[in-house]
């Protein structure tokens, strides 16, 4: 390959990330744009083969429903994000406690949740567990289901982060007389959090998208409302494309933020 072409197409060796200098940022941007245009051309071709008759007027009439659904999703995901993180930290600490029943509980929780479909968990919680405990608020059940589901993954992420903290850190904390709680609070968790932020943010992205499954118990979140619009207007693509866009608006900033965190963590060490 000729040198100028190489310079435009290849990143410097040993660099997995997008390069940082001004010139290389520019080259990266051009590459990104070209690939995006290529993909767009592919999709345009596919849509043209379909001979689809776009009709945006139906979905537009129901735009209030979209908004309502989108805000419900934001609320659901936001609440679940807080609850599942709390749950994850708690369970990760329990998994490391000296109390064996506590460890067993966390083990069963994590394996049970990760090994079964989210759909089954939602149905089980909504039709069996929630009625038994007189939990009637649909949204609360939804937040609970999503938090329990995502919490299991967060537990594993945090546990991994804690286990990644070197033995010397625990030993030093012990040597200066910190209690176990103080060690977690001031030494272990701050360091663990730094290293797991990228994977944690990735889990949050999943959580936002997974909230769409709560439509099966009739929570009027974004995906359910898009389904409603579709069944009212028979404009399938016009109902579901805004759905994709609505999720992207939430998840893309999270991903970009993760990228930045990764780069920062890179410089820190």
């Amino acid at each position: 390959m000729a040198a100028p072409v190489r310079r435009w197409l290849l990143a410097p060796e040993e660099s997995a990330e997008a390069p940082h200098s001004k010139a290389s940022t520019w080259r990266w941007g051009v590459n990104l744009l070209l690939v995006a245009l290529g993909l767009a051309a592919g999709f345009t071709f596919a849509f043209q083969q379909l001979h689809y008759h776009w009709n945006w007027s139906g979905p537009w009439r129901y735009r209030a429903l979209f908004w309502q659904g989108w805000f419900t999703t934001v609320a659901l995901a936001g609440a679940s994000l807080l609850v599942s993180t709390t749950l994850g930290v708690g369970a990760a600490l329990l998994a490391r406690s000296r109390l064996l029943p506590a460890r067993a509980l966390v083990r069963l929780y994590v394996e049970g949740i990760r090994g079964t479909p989210f759909l089954v968990q939602i149905l089980l919680l909504f039709y069996v567990v929630a009625p038994a405990f007189r939990l009637e608020n649909r949204l609360a059940v939804g937040v609970l289901a999503l938090s329990l589901f995502s919490g299991a993954y967060i537990t594993e992420i945090i546990r991994g982060g804690i286990e990644g903290i070197g033995k010397s850190q625990w030993e030093t904390a012990r040597a200066i007389g910190l209690t176990r709680t103080q060690t977690y609070r001031h030494v272990v968790l701050p360091q663990a959090l730094r290293s797991i932020l990228p994977s944690l943010a990735g889990q949050f992205v999943s959580l936002i998208k997974d909230s769409s499954l709560l439509s099966v118990i009739g929570i009027g979140e974004f995906a359910l409302q898009a389904q409603q619009v579709n069944s009212q207007t028979y404009s399938t693509l016009e109902s579901y494309l805004p759905l994709a866009l609505g999720y992207l608006v939430l998840t893309l900033p999270l991903s970009l933020w993760t990228r930045r965190l990764e780069r920062r963590a890179h410089f820190d060490t």
């Binding site: 010397s168 850190q169 030993e171 030093t172 040597a175 030494v187 360091q191 060490t269």
Partner: peptide, 8 residues
């Protein structure tokens, strides 16, 4: 300790 005494 020999090394790694400080909290990074």
């Amino acid at each position: 300790f020999q090394a790694h005494n400080l909290f990074p």
